[in-house]
Every structure is written in C-alpha cells, then in structure tokens.
C-alpha cells in the first residue's frame, strides 16, 4: 500500500497519465519531407549545363569560376574548360589579350581579333568564338578556344584550354555543352579577378613532371622571360615606379634560405643577417598544400616580397621587388598570386 493505493491501482493510474501525454503529443504535426514553391529569393547568377559523357568535373573551383571541367582521356584528365560569369560587359579584345599574353602573343588589336574570331550560332544564341595558339615556344601545340556569350550587358566566358588537337576533337562536345547551358545573371556583381590560365610553358616540364600554374593579376605586364626566369612580369604605376616580378626554379636548395635572403636584402640596401636575425624577415606559409617560407623585407626605398618553396628537391622562388610604395599597393595581389599557385 502507498498513500492508500493498491499497487494495481497505481499502475492503472500511471497508464492513464502516460496515455494522456502520448495522446497529446501525437496531436503534434508529424514532420515529413515538404515541397513547395515560393517567389525566388535567390539573387545570384544561374549557370547550368549538361556535361558530355567524355568530360569530367573539376571539384576545385576558385575565384570567379562557376564551373570547371576536363576531358577524360586514356592518359587521364586533360585540358581545362571553364565557366565564368561576368556581371559587366567586357571587351573581346581584352579577354583575348588576357589569354594571349600567357601564350606569348603580342597585344592583339581589334583588327587582328577579327581574323581569329567568328560568330557561331548555337541553339539560337550567338557565341563569339576566338582561337588563340601558343607562340611562347616553338613547336608548342597548346591552344585556347574562347567562347563568349553576351546578353543584356552581361558576358559569359567559356575558355577551353588544351592541346590543339584535343580541342579540335572535342569541338562538337564543346558546342553541345554550350547549347545545354542556362545563363542568367544575378543581382550580385561578379568581376573576374583573372581568367583561368593555361598550363605553364612546356619549358617547365623538363624540370618537373608537371609544372605549376598560377593566376597573374590582369594589370601585371608580361616582360621577357629568360632561360632562368620561368615567368617575368612588370608592374608600373602612374608615377613611373616599377616592380619586377619573377618565377625561378633551380635544382637543390641553391645555398639555403639564409644565403638567398641575404642576397635579396643586399639588393634592396639592407644589411645581411645571421640565422637568428632571419626570423625578422621570414614566416611560414602554405603554398598549394606545401610548407613554404614567405620573405618580407622593406628597405628605405625598395621592398621585396618573396616565397621560397622546395618541391621534390627543386627550389621555387616567387619574387616581386621594387619601389617600396608600389610594393605596398601590390602586396595583396602578390599574396593572391601565391594563393593561386598550383602544382598539379
């Protein structure tokens, strides 16, 4: 007995309460998968496509790219096809020059562009079709096919970067891919910082199975590369101040970090340092998932920003140096460049 209850009464009592509670809770809505339509809340660009069977998708999208693909071949993924929405209208000549410079071409004029471009009508839409070939190295078969679509002041760029023969063999797939696209600009402004760049010149391949790629800020002007310099650019401002940018690569450690940093410090008028003093100028960074060293040294008039990376026994130097004020302005572009370096 408990408070005058028999055990059986108590159990009955509990059952009644639990049943009441369960009944109450069972009245609540059972959560199920729901489908409904609402006025569109999405204000971004809409770009959709259907991929040809022979193509695969690259998951590592970066920058302004809405999509990135490759061609499946027996040798593995080859080439690179991209989708880049621009909120603004960009001139075909500018786009052609952005890619052309990377292919070692001199500046393409409007008249020259007419010779290498044509209008293709694909599924009722007009695409501007521009062919660019690699002129940086004799015998190079690298090429870029650019397809530009314009609609109401907006531009959609589809670069196809690959071996010339591969592009030719995939032209039909490229056309069917373009035909399948749905393109709608969004309210959010998208500005391409830099286009998808072609793979580096074949000269790298002698040193490395597959050389790195990178994105160069569009306003950096290509200067003459040499047997030592794998890439060479110049940055100039309105005052005539300049910065010199270079990418170099050598086997081994080329004397080590201390020796190289001291050499660079000397170039901008800073005294050499001992091992302990090195910390003042270098800090660790990650370049393409690899440990590297970032060097920042600012002299009285000149500055130097550089990154040193050792990959498979080779040293890679990415360096920009010159006017201190301009270097400060370009520092973020240099760091963005480092972010874009990719060893495939």
């Amino acid at each position: 007995m408990f408070l005058g209850f028999k055990i059986s009464q108590f159990i009955l009592f509990q059952t009644v309460i639990v049943s009441c509670c369960l009944l109450l809770f069972s009245c609540g809505e059972k959560k199920e998968i729901q489908t409904y339509e609402i006025p569109s809340e999405y204000d971004g660009p809409v770009v959709t496509w259907e991929l040809p069977d022979e193509w695969g998708e690259n998951p590592d999208l970066s920058g302004p790219m809405a999509g990135s693909f490759h061609v499946k071949t027996e040798l593995g993924p080859m080439g690179r096809i991209g989708v880049m929405p621009f909120r603004e209208s960009v001139s075909s000549t500018d786009v052609a020059n952005m890619f052309g410079m990377e292919l070692g071409q001199s500046t393409i004029s409007d008249d020259e562009l007419k010779e290498i471009s044509e209008i293709k009508l694909i599924e009722g839409r007009e695409f501007e079709w521009i062919w660019l070939s690699d002129k940086s190295h004799e015998g190079s078969t690298r090429a870029v096919l650019l397809a530009l679509f314009r609609d109401k002041g907006e531009t959609w760029l589809f670069p196809f970067i690959a071996d010339h023969d591969l592009i030719k063999s995939q032209t039909r797939n490229f056309e069917s891919f373009l035909a399948s696209t749905t393109l709608r600009a969004g309210a959010i402004e998208i500005r391409a910082k830099a286009p998808a760049l072609p793979p580096p010149p074949p000269a790298h391949h002698a040193h490395h199975n597959q050389g790195p790629t990178w994105d160069i800020p569009s306003h950096w002007v290509k200067s003459e590369a040499s047997s030592v310099r794998l890439a060479s650019y110049e940055v100039t401002d309105v005052n005539g101040s300049t910065l010199d940018f270079s990418v170099t690569s050598f086997p081994g450690d080329v004397g080590g970090i201390l020796a190289n940093v001291n050499r660079w410090l000397g170039q901008i008028g800073i005294d050499s340092v001992e091992q302990d003093g090195l910390k003042k100028y270098i800090s660790p960074i990650i370049l393409d998932e690899k440990d590297a060293q970032l060097v920042i040294a600012e002299g009285a008039t000149d500055s130097l920003y550089a990154a040193i990376l050792v990959v498979e026994g080779r040293s890679w130097f990415f360096k920009i140096t010159g006017d201190r004020t301009l270097a400060k302005v370009e520092k973020s572009n240099f760091l963005s460049f480092l972010d874009s370096v990719c060893f495939h």
């Binding site: 409904y36 609402i38 569109s40």
Partner: peptide, 18 residues
C-alpha cells in the same frame, strides 16, 4: 532549392527527424 526558373523557386525540405 531549384532556382533554374526565374521568379519562382521550388523548395524541398527534409526535416531534422529524418
């Protein structure tokens, strides 16, 4: 959310219970 069509979007929601 399927946003392919302008002006309207289709939404399919899967609740926490599931």
């Amino acid at each position: 959310s399927d946003v392919t069509v302008p002006n309207t979007q289709k939404v399919v929601t899967i609740p926490q219970d599931i």
